[in-house]
Design a protein around this nucleic acid. Structure first.
Length: 592
RNA sequence: GAUUCCGUAGCUCAGUUGGAUAGAGCAACUGCCUUCUAAGCAGUCGGUCACAGGUUCGAAUCCUGUCGGGAUCACCA
């Protein structure tokens, strides 16, 4: 490709005595209704040369065919020069891919450390569909950066402190009768979540009572006994009250056990955990330091602020007048702690919903003003909401889709379809379970990851468990085909021989072309922090493979050289698809 | 109101340095299993790229405005 650009530049000078800039030499994919492997857009060149695009295209095509060994033929349609490369060119490309360690992937840990934060749950209720999108996205971006050579640390901030957990604590203490995950048989996060809901019910009824006694809505909301007691608990917690702290520890522990079970099913992991309870004080100290250094200012009431009006933003509070930490205070503390823990970190990626965009703009500016230049490379991986056909998820209206429930549904759907197909008859029960899990999770993850992260997306339960078409199982199925061929080849003793074929079938050619793009795909996906690029690419590869599979027989091919080529193509496709999907956190079964 | 993201086929989505007749899947309809797994392949049907201007050889893509939807604009998290 490089040499093609050079040749065109030379042709410009020798044929037309003009100098073309590199950016005027534009290539694009050849539309499939025309013949060619790449297409040169002639218009910009014609403009500079003052020639008719069609004539110029023909002259240029003839020149390239004459002077470039891998240019086999050309045709000109309007102002587009379609160039066809020789089979030899593509066979060389295939050889290059085959001899690469992991074609398309950079050397592991050859680039600086990036931290990727995702999940960031509150410890008062179970994980739901929104968390699934968050976790899958964060995990995938982390893996994508790894594939591009970065050292990656996956981190989580756990919001274990604050009024929300105190609400659950209050309800459990007053209404729980000592119930535990063991005694109730409930997952810990579900149990704690149950009491959060209980609190809300009590709170509402107390508000109603107070309002019927003549209080205004605001008064009722702030004077409801349960709320005042929950706030007492928060103060007691901050003061280190032993009873409150112990209850806090116990209930959080239940939640962590529940979360860990869910994370394991989801197939996500973390290298390092950060707890708000351990960073909010540091945040306060950092803000105080900033105040001393004159980066921030204090208002008369004692609250501390930053003035970002020169950056086009507003003034923003960083610490309350009573000196307690706010949401942003603890984020400042956490970010700085991470830079201190991992001094080689060049960037932090925050996987957090798009409703926090303003928050992160402010956070990065604050960090910069506090003297952390890494903050300029920090990125808020902002993603859109997952909507349901009946509207938004609202916990109060019971329309939240629980993560555990959904994963179980996906498993059951995968099991049902698999049993219907009856292709797993030879397997042990345990092996079958693994396959069902892989299929169910593939459907779910792919469904959530194939969409551009920044867009809101629609989650339709019926469509998500469809295993046909542009879905995770479709991709798995393509992979399974490559593995089946590999197995069969070994069984009948067919091996890849040294005999090299000279000519390519159209669908072989197209498949090689697509596989050859892999490095570029990974780089652009990483540059955009967008795993959907990889998801859609994997789909294209499998589609192309299926066409190839349909058109070319592999094991039954008589010609040894052609058979070898096809086996190689199978292996390469399987590898590419498997590694692409591993970036998305999707595992591949060997059969399905 | 201000800021910001979004609006592409009946539905869900691709389409990123401006390029040819705007692409997939689902849904509906046709074909293809004695041949490597039919969770597949091939095909038909389906479009005023929200709307109106502008920039130019060329606009779904860039600019301006309008309409529609989401998010944010707290000493909440």
């Amino acid at each position: 490709m490089e040499s093609l650009i050079n040749h065109i530049a030379v042709a410009g000078e020798t044929l037309f005595q003009v100098k073309w800039e590199a950016k005027q030499i534009q290539f694009q994919e050849t539309r499939k209704e025309f013949e060619g492997d790449t297409t040169l857009v002639v218009f910009p060149l014609a403009k500079v040369a003052g020639k008719n695009p069609e004539e110029l295209g023909n002259a240029l095509g003839a020149y390239l065919q004459e002077n470039v060994d891998f240019v086999e033929s050309f045709n000109v349609v309007k102002g587009f020069l379609n160039i066809r490369f020789s089979d030899h060119y593509w066979l060389t490309a295939l050889e290059q891919m085959r001899s690469a360690e992991s074609w398309g992937w950079a050397t592991p840990n050859s680039k600086p450390r990036i931290m990727v934060e995702y999940s960031s749950p509150n410890t008062n209720k179970p994980l739901h569909l929104g968390h699934l999108r968050n976790n899958f996205l964060g995990y995938a971006v982390a893996e994508l950066l790894k594939a591009n050579g970065h050292t990656v640390t996956k981190v989580q901030i756990i919001n274990d402190r604050g009024i929300h957990i105190c609400k659950s604590m209050w309800a459990w203490k007053n209404l729980g009768n000592g119930e535990t995950p063991q005694s109730s048989g409930m997952k810990g996060d579900k149990l704690v979540g149950k009491y959060y809901v209980e609190f809300d019910k009590t709170y509402k009824s107390q508000i109603t009572d107070l309002m019927s006694q003549g209080k205004t809505k605001e008064e009722a909301e702030s004077h409801a006994p349960c709320m005042m007691q929950a706030q007492d608990m928060l103060r007691a917690w901050e003061a280190g009250d032993e009873g409150v702290v112990n209850l806090w520890k116990t209930m959080n522990q239940w939640v962590y056990e529940g979360f860990n079970a869910t994370y394991q099913k989801m197939g996500v992991d973390f290298d390092q955990l950060y707890f708000e309870s351990q960073t909010y004080l540091k945040g306060r100290n950092e803000v105080m330091k900033g105040l001393e250094n004159g980066v921030f200012f204090q208002k008369e009431d004692g609250s501390i602020w930053i003035d970002l009006t020169d950056e086009g933003l507003d003034q923003k509070a960083l610490l309350r007048k009573d000196g307690t930490a706010m949401y942003i205070t603890q984020d400042i503390g956490t970010a700085i702690l991470r830079f201190e823990d991992y001094p080689d970190t060049v960037s932090q990626i925050y996987t957090v919903g798009n409703e926090q965009e303003y928050h992160f703009k402010v956070l990065f500016k604050v960090l910069k003003k506090l003297g952390w230049p890494q903050s300029e490379a920090c990125h808020h991986l902002s993603y859109g909401m997952v909507e349901l056909p009946e509207g938004k998820m609202k916990s109060r209206e019971g329309t939240v889709v629980d993560a555990d429930d959904l994963m179980e549904e996906m498993y059951n759907a995968a099991k049902e379809v698999s049993e219907e197909q009856g292709k797993l008859s030879g397997l042990e029960d345990q092996e079958k379970v693994e396959v069902y899990e892989k299929i169910g999770m593939a459907a779910l993850k792919y469904f959530l990851l194939r969409v551009d992260p920044k867009k809101n997306m629609m989650f339709n339960p019926q469509e998500s468990i469809d295993f046909n078409g542009n879905t995770g199982p479709f991709i798995q199925y393509g992979y399974v085909r490559t593995q089946a061929i590999k197995r069969k080849a070994a069984e009948v003793g067919i091996v890849i021989s040294d005999k090299k074929t000279k000519t390519l079938h159209v669908s072989e050619r197209e498949l090689i072309k697509l596989l050859y793009q892999y490095p570029v795909i990974l780089q652009s996906a990483a540059a955009l922090y967008d795993p959907s690029v990889v998801a859609n690419y994997a789909y294209e590869v499998v589609r192309q493979f299926n066409a190839f599979y349909q058109n070319c027989s592999i094991l039954r091919e008589e010609d040894e050289a052609a058979r070898s080529l096809r086996l190689e193509l199978c292996a390469l496709t399987g590898d590419c698809v498997q590694r692409s999907m591993s970036i998305l956190g999707v595992q591949m079964p060997d059969r399905m």
